[in-house]
Every structure is written in C-alpha cells, then in structure tokens.
Amino acid sequence: MRRKKNDLHYNVMVLPGIAFLALFSIVPMFYAIMAFQNFKPGRGISGSEWIGLENFTYLFQLPDSRQIFFNTIFLAVLKIIANLIVPLLFALLLNEVRVRFLRKWIQTIVYLPHFLSWVLLATIFFDVFSLDGIVNKLFGVFGIDPVLFYASNKWFPAIIVGTDVWKEFGFNAIVYLAALTGINPVLYEAADIDGASRFRQLWHVTLPGVRTTVVLLGTLALGNVMNANFDQIFNMYNPLVYQSADIIDTYVYRVGLNDLQYSLATAVGLFKSVISFILVVVSYVLASRFANYRIF
C-alpha cells in the first residue's frame, strides 16, 4: 500500500474506533482465562484458584447444555438461510417493478423495521400472536382452534425466525439491489433480441449476475452460526419455551448475571467464541476461494 502524507487525518479519525475496540473487545479477552478458575471478584484474576477444565467438564454434564447448543445452531442456521433467500427473492421481485417511484417507496418501507428495537417489537408481536391477537382471529375465521404461539415449542422457533426475517429482509435486500443495478443493461438487451422471456432473462442474466454476492454473503454468514440474536430471544422468550429457544447467550446471561456464576458463564462464552472463530476462518477461506473476497 502506498502512503501519502495527507493520510494522517484518516488515521486520527480511526483512533476512537480503535480505542473502543481495545477497551471493549480486546482487553476483556484476557479475562477469558477466568473460565479456568474459580473466579472470585474480591480476589481478582491473580488471586483466584485455578481449577483447569472443571468448568468445561461441568458445562458438558449440564442437562441443558446440549439443548442450548442445539437451539443456538438450529435457530442461527435457519435464520441465515432464510435471511439469504427471502431478501434475494424480494430484491428480484422488486427489480421487476418498473415504476421507479413505487419501487423506491416499497424499498423504504420494508427496511424501516430494521431500525426498531427488539424490546418494542417483542411487545408488538406478543399482541399479534396472543390468544385474541390478529393471527388467532384469522385462524378463527377458518375454524382453526386458537394456538398459544408463545407457549408452544413447536411454533416458537418459527416465530423467532419469521419475525427476524420480517425485521431484516428489507435491509438485507439493499445489497442485492445494488448488485442488480450493477448488471450491465446491455446483457438484457442482448437477451431480449435473442427472444428470451422475462423468466429466461432472470435465469440467465440476473441470477448469474448476483451469484457472487449470494455466495459471499452466505459464506460470511457462517461466522454467525453461533449467534442466534440475544436481543430478540431475550425479549421474546419465557420459561415455557426454554426448551426450544434458550440459546447460549441467554443462558450465559442468566447464569452469569443472575446467578453470579462468573466462571461458568465465561466458560460457556469462551467455548462459543472458539467455535465462532473457527467458523469465521472457514468462512473467510471459502469466501476468498469462491467469491474472490479478501481482506488481507
């Protein structure tokens, strides 16, 4: 990389970000060693007793741990897949809308939910899915018995994934829309002249045009396989659906901050981070191979 003197102000501008990163992400990393201790705040890291892998052994003996790891991965994978496909379909459809004004309007409206907080949405969805909520009223019209969605381990994962997709698909579609605009219009003209129908054009021009974007987003999302979105689940779940919705992060929160078992919570978090790290590396390798995406 070539350096110029007038790069300095850029470097200054990045300083707060680096300080933030160091303070909240890098420094705390050293404290992860408390996962191997019986950590007592009063004695600190240096004064607490070392217990090796005991926390991890205990973690794997817990009846809940298998469930929370499964839930985390299950929900995260479903979300990743849904969040790839739905925005893509939406972007493709929107791309076909020829009225520019209408297209912009739709695009703006569907990405608004991205900016709402889960605290608020959880309350709204509770009403929507409650016994006398809209969904159950609709069910009633068709003579279906009301369902307690929030209390049902069958429905709850679907609600978690569905609401997450609803909130994010508009925002995620932006990348696809950008990729779609990047496709050379000449290709469509050529296809048109060759007598390709709109569907054929979609298949042979549009999809190949966004293929690299899809692959890139897909592989990068791998790093999120252990992240099922604490914000959302913490605000929406209840003890009845722990079985299907308790994830690593909510568990760590309850064990660490409510029950004050710092070491155990750290062990869970560290374990999660290690797996996430491996997945991030894998996704990076895959992304650089298939989509020619490189950071370094």
Partner: peptide, 8 residues
C-alpha cells in the same frame, strides 16, 4: 388463564 405464563 391460558396465557398466564406469557405476560411480561
């Protein structure tokens, strides 16, 4: 109440 466990 069917929803007793769900109220925040």
């Amino acid at each position: 109440d069917k929803q007793f466990a769900l109220y925040k």
